[in-house]
Amino acid sequence: MEFPEELKYTEEHEWVSLDGDIVTIGVTDFAQDQLGDVVFVELPEVGEQVQGGKPFGVVESVKAVSDVYAPVSGEVIEINDALPDDPELINNSPYEEGWMLKIRLTTPAELEELMSVEAYQDFIEG
């Protein structure tokens, strides 16, 4: 399983990458493996506000549904349009083509709460 070093992670198995005040969010390799084959992804609409720690969408496999939680708060500025037609991108490329949404950060302090790659790896092995 891969966990890129430059990313930040959450206990709900999302990853975060930061570029200025724009944050890209997806689910980790561990999460996609636990879910199994993803068959459907439900995302918020551009313009919606998401709140750190609250669900913003849903990922479904054949026999399971999981909420996806926003790692940080902000306004949705872009969603991955490819996911509704090709939900398997989450399985095949969780950190690249399987990204879920980009938000404009409103509370940068929330970033402090996120885990480093080492902390996340300890967490999932824990």
Partner: peptide
């Protein structure tokens, strides 16, 4: 066995 993933996708 049937492909339930394909059916759902």
């Amino acid at each position: 066995r049937l492909d339930e993933t394909a059916a759902a996708r």
